[in-house]
Design a protein around this nucleic acid. Structure first.
Lengths: 173, 173
DNA sequence: GGTGAAATTACAGCTTC
DNA sequence: GAAGCTGTAATTTCACC
């Protein structure tokens, strides 16, 4: 069970800036936050150790990689038992088309975010990797018109209102 | 319209390694790929200029930030017209609970990935930010049991099979 | 692809509250 | 004593050849 970590305003400011651009240098962070670069280094190292920061990821454009069509697949697995879902999960995660994968409550057991070349490629994926599997009872395909990234992830505030956004929390493009 | 970019095996190898850890140094990349560090620098710079690499993102643990409950909200907006969806999209993107946001085909117009503190917080979010809006006709809430990240994003292969994974494409935990 | 300068990062010891 | 600052060494980045 991962427990919530106590974060002071300096930590939060650093996290907000790094979420905007994970390659911000400690010097720049320091100038913005108003502490020494080494302090920023210490803070970031602690945030890593405490598990708040899990890592750094590259953000790629699927379209430029020849995967210009994205979709969400809602999948019902029957029977919904461990022996069957283990191999299913492993297989779906390993697909080169899979971007993200969720196990959910509700009528659909899984949601898979996929990126494919075109509708033909999507059809192949659905038929060959989903509906052809014995444990897959149903697949519903929803194309993605557009997707957005949202603002930085911050701890909730006590009153349930937006946290103060410091130096401008404007979600990227 | 973003067009697919031609990538050679060196580019693909670099992209695979950087997707595993975006902070890999050019020296390490060079050693793995078998080219000079300066060549890696050139390649990465080109991948940035060509739009394949959009940026670097921090991967955070929502639970450690006090947002231990995640859910997907399927939202139907009626009438589904530009005048109404503009403000809706802006508002939902700006919510501190929103992590990702999709405009979809199918019976549900939008899917919102949210991270909240607990069920009470989720209830507040759904009631105050979704069902209370006049243009929101229906919201379906699906809790997330578990989620996975998938393997590195690579261009599709001609035959629709998995691309060669070089030095071990094992998706992270 | 290699080299060298500049910048960044890591890490020590010292200071402060 | 925990947290932050300053200085220095090691590493990384990057412009130029």
């Amino acid at each position: 069970m991962s427990e919530s970590v106590a974060l002071d305003p300096v930590d939060l400011h650093i996290l907000r800036l790094l979420q905007n651009d994970a390659r911000t240098t400690y010097r720049e962070l320091a100038a913005e936050v108003g502490v020494a670069p080494s302090t920023c280094l210490d803070r970031v190292a602690r945030l890593r150790r405490s598990g708040v920061i899990l890592g750094h990821r590259l953000r790629l454009d699927p379209a430029r990689l020849g995967r210009g069509l994205e979709a969400l697949l809602l999948v019902q697995v029957r029977p919904h038992r461990r022996e069957l879902i283990g191999p299913f999960v492993d297989r779906i995660r390993a697909l080169p088309e899979s971007r993200a994968f969720f196990h959910l409550t509700g009528p659909d057991d899984y949601l898979v975010h996929v990126a494919v070349a075109d509708p033909t490629d999507l059809q192949r994926l659905v038929l060959d990797e989903f509906t052809s599997r014995r444990e897959v009872a149903r697949v519903e395909t929803r194309l993605i018109f557009q997707q957005w990234e949202c603002g930085p992830l911050m701890p909730p505030t006590a009153d349930g209102r937006n946290p103060a956004t410091g130096s401008g929390t404007r979600p990227g493009s």
